[in-house]
């Protein structure tokens, strides 16, 4: 028993020692269009990293590569210390359940109610849970995103902000250690954008998550990001805190803050 605890502690220690996400020399092309030309980045445990960049600069592609939705041409993507590009699908799925992904338009399953959207994933990964336990977890998560009353609604009945919250709830239901946000505030009004940004911080504190946030929304970046990176022409061009980048000597970087 003691050996087992010791072994677990060693594994936990070794996981804490390495960055949660580490990307080395990531290349990705679509035909002749080389979008990512050697991206390098590191995200440490408990950190919120914001990635800024112009539309089409490859921000979303970068996070899609992290969950194995896109095959990379060259490079290394280490998640929890494992290079996911070399994993078999079953092993990759083992990593995927520890990562949450909030899509730009929430990607809720249209044919399912909010309850089923959340339960669909949970029932498949926590088969030992009883129906009552599934229901109580769904309610708990919906409560944490402030939308308990939407449990029986269909996605078509939800507003843009509500869809994002439900998308986030669906992501949180598996208690992920990493959350990747793909433009979480796009298409939302200023007030709702702020609410979503505050929710991201709340989730970071409550669930101790590590996150990458792709955004164009500077108030969201300021509020949620512990560190910011700017992607330009397929490589990471600048890095720093919000305040540091705001005062950057690079005019192109400063233009994001105008």
């Amino acid at each position: 028993m003691e050996d087992e605890i010791k072994k677990r502690n060693i594994i936990q220690k070794s996981e804490a020692d390495v960055p949660v996400i580490e990307i080395k020399n990531l290349h990705k092309s679509f035909g002749t269009n080389e979008v990512l030309k050697g991206v390098n980045l590191t995200v440490n445990k408990g950190e919120n990293l914001v990635i800024l960049g112009k539309s089409g600069s490859g921000k979303s592609i970068t996070i899609k590569c992290i969950v194995g939705l896109m095959r990379i041409d060259e490079g290394e993507i280490n998640v929890f210390g494992t290079d996911i590009t070399k994993l078999h699908i079953a092993e990759l799925n083992g990593i995927r359940v520890r990562i949450g992904f909030l899509f730009q338009n929430a990607a809720l399953y249209d044919s399912m109610s909010v309850r089923d959207n959340l339960g669909f994933t949970l029932k498949r990964h926590a088969k030992d849970l009883s129906a009552e336990e599934v229901e109580s977890q769904i309610k708990e998560i919906l409560d944490s995103v402030g939308l308990s009353e939407a449990i029986d609604k269909m996605p078509s009945e939800l507003s843009g902000g509500m869809r994002k919250r439900i998308g986030l709830a669906r992501t949180l239901i598996l208690k992920p250690e990493i959350i990747l946000y793909d433009e979480p505030t796009t298409g939302l009004d200023t007030i709702t954008s702020r609410e979503i940004s505050e929710l991201i911080i709340e989730i970071q504190k409550k669930y101790k998550t590590t996150s990458i946030i792709i955004t164009h929304d500077m108030p969201c970046a300021k509020l949620t990001g512990n560190r910011l990176m700017v992607l330009k022409e397929g490589v990471m061009h600048a890095e720093g805190t919000y305040e540091e980048l705001e005062k950057s000597e690079d005019e192109w970087v400063r233009s994001f803050f105008l």
């Binding site: 083992g94 995927r96 990562i99 899509f103 399953y109 990964h125």
Partner: peptide, 17 residues
């Protein structure tokens, strides 16, 4: 097709389904 363009299929895949 609609599930594909609205990323619902991707959402299933990233949930390890």
């Amino acid at each position: 097709g609609s599930m594909k363009v609205t990323e619902q299929i991707d959402a299933m895949e990233v949930s390890a389904i």
